[in-house]
Write a protein that binds this DNA or RNA. Structure first.
Lengths: 216, 216
DNA sequence: TATGAAAGTGAGTAATCACTCACTAATTTA
DNA sequence: TAAATTAGTGAGTGATTACTCACTTTCATA
């Protein structure tokens, strides 16, 4: 089973059962959307790549944009899944006495996820600027929830005296900048270069902790 | 004359040579490309917005992609202009004894530029994933030269004992992540929120310096 | 095995696409 | 001023677009 197949299966594991042809449509769409972008991909091209008639696409998805949303919405949901589980704070605070351990765990977990879903991640960040519907969904349901959670986490570790006194939103911003900066550089800007991932992640965390901790 | 020089030359001198209609075409194209993306913008739409006949666009630009390139290439050149001037290192090393001052100056200068050219910046980062020609140009002529320069700067301040011993490329990566993270959050993700820019930039630099300096 | 519903098909459709071209208008050059 | 060059036009082009629909095939259940 290929990487793509694994990705697709994971994505729709809990969703309604899809027919073989439907799965192939989704897989073909993901491939083309990630490579050429949503607007530059035609439905005839997707049908050809998926080995189905063009009409089959519209049997399952009312419009081309519906197909995009069917791909992107569950991806965003999965991306933030670890942040919206019940008792997120409790679990974390119990498991991680130090902010550094929390950051490490989150980074490793989410990088692993994104590594296995790079095409989907590509589509999300490439289409968010162009799809108001998608942007709205991201802002209201995704970003806000995550930031609210993260704010609590930051305040918790600030109270424990582990990270500097700075507005939590600023700390969240620079932290996410650092993490996504690594992911984008590693997997999108220079994926062909040689990367010692473990070392590079360690350095990134070192920089982050230096920047945020009270003492050295 | 190098590619860059030519681009810069073109940028500064060609502006006067454009006819009124041509200027309107470029302005309309920038507006639409930034808003809807290159692929989703039609030439008829640009012509209508510019108040010219559609044929006029193709009188000056052979293809729609040529129009995009005529907009984007000089923008990239302008963005990196401060990094490719002659005696870049000398000037900087003379003026800035501390890495922090250098960072401050660059951030302020480039944020000011991007603030005034946000539509163009949008187009560049939105289209780089989809235009191989653009990506190639960016990588070969832009990114490499900048990184080479920045590497020298980083090594210089490392030798002076002002920033931590870490591979210069890693330091450049986290630094650029932090800076672009601010710009993207400030002007693209949440431009409607209230921002105390001076304070927020100060905090960002504080985080950056904490993360990169040897002592506190 | 019969039947209805869902899945799948592909030719067809109107609209739109990037681009052309024969032409006129304006400007530069001789 | 005359000729030559450039700027501007807009109807017209074939190709492609997202999407439809009458039809056939597949398949679960009675």
């Amino acid at each position: 089973m290929s990487q793509q197949d694994k990705m697709i299966e994971e994505l729709f594991h809990n969703a309604d059962e899809l027919t073989e042809k439907q799965k192939k449509i989704v897989a073909a769409a993901i491939e083309s959307f990630a490579e050429k972008g949503f607007a530059a991909t035609s439905t005839s091209e997707i049908a050809k790549k998926a080995g189905v008639a063009e009409g089959t696409i519209f049997r399952h998805y009312k419009t081309k944009k519906d197909l995009l949303m069917a791909i992107v919405a569950p991806t965003m949901a999965k991306l933030i899944a670890p942040f919206v589980i019940k008792d997120f704070n409790k679990v974390l605070n119990h498991d991680f006495d130090h902010f550094e351990d929390f950051i490490k765990a989150i980074i490793e977990n989410r990088i692993k996820f994104l590594k296995n879903n790079m095409s989907l991640f590509r589509i999300v960040i490439q289409e968010i600027p162009f799809q108001p519907e998608l942007r709205e969904q991201f802002k209201e349901h995704i970003a806000q929830k995550i930031i609210e959670r993260l704010r609590q986490i930051v305040e918790h570790y600030q109270a424990k005296g582990q990270i500097i006194e700075m507005p939590p939103d600023t700390i969240i911003r620079v932290t996410l900048s650092t993490i996504f900066g690594y992911i984008i550089a590693r997997y999108l800007l220079a994926p062909e270069e040689e990367w010692d991932d473990n070392t590079e992640i360690e350095r990134t965390i070192q920089f982050l902790m230096n920047g945020l901790s009270l003492e050295k």
